[in-house]
Nucleic acid binder design. Structure first.
Lengths: 356, 356
DNA sequence: TTTCAAATTGAGACCGGTCTCTTTGCTTCT
DNA sequence: AGAAGCAAAGAGACCGGTCTCAATTTGAAA
């Protein structure tokens, strides 16, 4: 029975109905699991379906029901451990709730992000989870929200947008880290992020469109200011968007006179590159240079010295976002919720007193 | 004009047609970009569509065309850097070719994998890329292939299945690594994999259902045998499926008398755990213990000592798989192709002569 | 036995596109 | 001028399900 040639035209309810000797409507009731049917008919239809190897066409089903059973996810880069872990959280919840996930990388590019959302909307996803590249441009998000399909924001929110949002308490984390470094005598503290500005220079936090990072930078700057350090803006470096860029930035910074005595890396990919670059230059961590990285990537505990990090509940970030979305998909329209998950500073050995 | 209430019922071709004063068929021609239309009509329809903010319904389109513009991807665990990188390769190619990706994690569980494929087939994906958990069970893959939708296998193939396959030359890599260790005097060499058997014991390579790993183990064992080492089977450890399991296995192994002098880790997640465990026990790498890991994860170059690894072209693995699939989706039925990508041993400093 | 509501089943419209088949209107060739 | 050829537009079927509504059965109450 394996010998039937590749069945190009698939079996439909009508086929099953014919074979079972009932009407299409009745067969559909059995196959779709709705309405009422007698046991005898149910068995006949089930048997016919099995004999014909009937496979429901979800597309057709979605067509009439209006629900596609999919949620669209737009992240910066699935290759980044941060996102792959968050996506894991999302897919776990989604599957549990009976949804599948369509994944699109934006590459942190707003144009790509817009296209992605448009595509997903066209495919009639039931809901969206987006990690917006820029908070300055949110027409497309607004539009998505207005299309009637629920939207949840991941890791980056915007107060201007009344949608479900799950973020970490980045500002708080940055403040804690900065305070710690200040207490150890550091005054030249650099902050490095992948976010970029048009001229690759940083002036004020509002230059930074990625919400999570902006909040961190604000926390960093404010804490410095409170400690009496002014003009720390010049220690914020943007544009570390690839390992090469990062290396160039870090190397330049560490080779300059008046180099920083401490560096805060905005994610683990950057942190890794800082680690490599400082070693390449011959600076010892932590005696010459203290390092703190965001994201408790698995490798950070295994280097020499192990790296002090801000542990973000990344998996839970994705998980919660998906939960909010699913709830909204099922339940009725409640108000937009904003969830802030706590971070934790994991002190390891990459931070020490500032060198004299 | 932003004030219209959330439009629950969307704009259709018929609406656009009405507004433009043409027939539904004509409007569809313009909107769908097929057939011939006069410039005047085209403009009228375009204008109407813009005015109404028309959004095509891809579902409906897929319904008739039979093409959904999606490819389904089933991987073990997106959280694993190996897969997230491969998926990155897949999505890049897919997007380029105009496809979106539906992602499902199997958790390396065959039952889940079957369900995943069934779901994807029901959603009428145009093609599938699967990294099969087990090569022993491939009915569901066979079925998928028979359903007429192209299938490509990623990282794990089966000669029994005539479908496009992209793998790395795992056997070769394992042979090379083993030879290197043997040359350095190692005789007690352990191989650790996440794959598992029913009784968590390894007897023969055929116990291992994951193709890539089986080929490696075969390479390992054969090379040992050629060197006159018999019964190396007892050095193959299965079931390192989580950090905790791995730690337990490694710790037990290293604490035992006659502990291995070298360990080959089947992926970077395991390699990391071996690194941690040996350090926790107080064994020095490489003087007490040599370590080689599969997958050139980013952190492996930054530990002390940096870890010798087998560099697999992971991104290209995904990329090629997607390419094969897309070609088959466009072109006509050619024979199944099997692509084997070369690996490379990156010698760093975690391998040394066997201790006396 | 008659009556009436509830349970079953059938017929056919519908979702929003695509696509085939016609009809209509011009242009062009002889 | 008449026929042929072709572009442009319309009508309506179709994809494979769901769902409404009406028709038929069934079963229990009267």
């Amino acid at each position: 029975m394996d010998q039937n040639p590749p069945r190009s035209t698939s079996v439909t309810v009508a086929d099953v109905a014919r074979r079972a000797g009932v009407s299409k409507a009745t067969a559909a009731r059995v196959l779709g699991g709705y309405g009422t049917v007698s046991d005898r008919v149910r068995e006949a239809v089930t048997a016919a379906a099995r004999a014909l190897d009937y496979r429901p066409n979800e597309l057709a089903r979605s067509m009439t029901t209006g629900r596609s059973g999919t949620i669209g996810v737009v992240v910066g880069d699935i290759e980044n451990p941060f996102f792959s872990l968050a996506v894991r959280g999302i897919t776990d919840v989604a599957r549990q709730a009976g949804f599948t996930v369509i994944l699109i990388n934006s590459g942190e590019d707003v144009t790509a992000e817009k296209a992605a959302i448009r595509t997903l909307l066209a495919k009639r996803v039931d809901g969206l989870i987006v990690s917006p590249a820029k908070e300055s441009e949110l027409d497309h998000l607004q539009e998505a929200a207005r299309s009637g399909r629920p939207l949840a924001l991941l890791d980056r929110g915007s107060e201007a947008l009344a949608v479900d949002t799950v973020i970490a308490d980045d500002r708080n984390a940055a403040e804690g880290v900065t305070r710690r470094l200040l207490a150890l005598g550091h005054r030249r503290i650099a902050y490095i992020t992948a976010c970029d500005t048009s001229d690759h220079l940083f002036r004020t936090p509002s230059d930074i469109n990625t919400g999570s990072v902006r909040r961190r930078v604000e926390g960093f700057l404010d804490t410095c200011r409170e400690a009496g350090l002014a003009e720390m803006e010049r220690w914020v470096h943007v544009g570390a968007s690839s390992p090469e860029h990062t290396r160039r930035i870090v190397t330049g910074m560490l080779r300059a006179s008046g180099r920083p005595t401490a560096i805060i890396a905005s994610d683990s990919v950057i942190g890794l590159e800082v680690f490599k670059a400082s070693r390449a230059i011959g600076l010892a961590i932590p005696s010459d240079l203290s390092l703190v990285s965001f994201h408790d990537a698995d490798w950070t505990s295994v280097t020499s010295p192990p790296v002090t990090v801000v542990r973000q509940p990344v998996y839970r970030l994705g998980e919660r976002a998906a939960q909010l979305l699913v709830e909204r998909l099922n339940g009725e329209g409640m108000e937009a919720r904003r969830v802030v998950l706590q971070t934790e500073i994991v002190e390891r050995a990459s931070v020490a007193e500032a060198p004299a």
